[in-house]
Simulated scan of single mutants.
Amino acid sequence: MIGIVGIVVIFVMVFGGYIAAGGKMAIILKSLPYEFTMIGGAAIGAFVISNDTSAIKHTLKDVGKVFKGPRWKPDDYRDLLCLLFELVRFARQDPVRLEEHIEAPGDSSIFANYPRILKDREAIDLICDTLRSASMNYDDPHQVEEVLEKRMEANHEAAMHSSHALQTMADGLPALGIVAAVLGVIKTMGSIDQPPEILGKLIGGALVGTFLGVFLAYGLVGPFASKVKDVTEEDNHFYHLIREVLVANLHSHAANICIEVGRQNTPSHIRPSFSELEEALKEVKQRDVA
């Protein structure tokens, strides 16, 4: 919602100020379809050239983050801590039966209590693979931690591709606007024998290309890239929380300590309070007893 508000503010302030200053929209509206075809078409073409099919689909999907915001909400972080608590405690009590849950999380009674997390393949794979590594009796927990770190860096780099692709497009739009403007000047020079009022409109139409390229770059595509980057980094905290808890588990800390390590390493604006988490963990314990 806030993304839509921002777009409305941009258009109202830019074009509202232009009209208030005595500008006429007729020249812009007449030239806009042609200039947009040249600039937008060239930008899209360059985007397609520089990305493969999967990256294009990924970027188009990530544009929705501008309006939806982060995927993981504060309640999801609380649920994740509860899920990890159950798994860590189960691993200590009955490591053999734990294999049933981590080998087939879709059929697990533990994972079934957290459907939103279960839908995220990367989160589930990260949890199950790390618990599986722990069950293999690694001599040095730092080995698992290093593997986790490299895996998360690779995943984060892949997730950031959409932001980089949009920013590259934003960087190129002003130059494409100049290309469109130059073509407009060439068109104007072909009508140099026309009276000043006609030449004025032709020159104004040519300058719309420069305006449109800069406006799209800094008013829309650039901010989109920045927002996608921020949301991606925000969602990445979810996977960092998994790492913090499971690494603490590898060092044989008590289950409650592992969870508290994860809670305190969660950013403050999405971190569940100690009392809130304690209440949720009590419900988990009661459900396990039942």
Rank of each mutant, 00 (worst) to 15 (best):
F47V: 01
F47W: 06
F47L: 06
V48I: 04
I49Y: 05
S50T: 10
N51V: 04
N51G: 08
N51W: 04
D52W: 11
T53G: 02
A55V: 13
A55Y: 14
A55M: 13
K57Y: 14
K57N: 13
K57V: 12
H58L: 06
L60D: 01
L60S: 07
L60T: 07
K61W: 05
D62Y: 04
D62V: 05
D62T: 09
D62W: 01
G64K: 13
G64I: 13
K65E: 04
V66E: 02
F67V: 13
F67P: 05
F67L: 10
K68Q: 11
K68S: 13
K68L: 13
K68I: 12
P70H: 04
P70E: 00
P70F: 00
R71Q: 13
R71S: 15
W72P: 07
K73Q: 12
P74L: 07
P74E: 00
D75S: 08
D75P: 01
D76P: 03
D76N: 07
D76W: 01
Y77T: 06
Y77W: 06
R78N: 02
R78K: 11
D79Q: 10
L80Q: 00
L80F: 04
L81G: 01
L83H: 07
L83M: 05
L84P: 02
L84R: 08
L87G: 00
L87P: 00
L87K: 08
V88Q: 08
V88K: 15
R92L: 12
Q93W: 12
Q93T: 14
D94S: 15
D94C: 14
P95E: 03
P95M: 02
P95S: 10
V96W: 08
V96E: 10
V96P: 05
R97L: 11
R97P: 08
E99T: 12
E99I: 13
E100R: 15
H101Y: 11
I102Q: 13
I102D: 04
A104G: 04
P105F: 08
G106N: 11
D107H: 13
D107G: 12
S108M: 10
S109Y: 14
S109P: 09
F111I: 00
A112C: 11
A112P: 07
Y114R: 13
P115W: 01
L118H: 01
R121I: 10
R121N: 15
R121G: 13
E122R: 02
E122L: 03
A123S: 06
A123D: 04
I124E: 03
I127P: 01
I127R: 03
C128Y: 07
D129H: 15
T130W: 05
T130D: 03
R132H: 07
S133H: 14
S133L: 14
S133T: 11
S133P: 10
M136H: 08
M136D: 00
M136R: 15
N137I: 09
Y138Q: 10
Y138N: 12
D139R: 15
D140E: 15
P141L: 03
P141E: 01
P141A: 05
H142F: 06
H142Q: 08
Q143G: 10
V144E: 00
V144Q: 03
E145F: 00
E145H: 04
E145D: 01
V147F: 08
L148C: 09
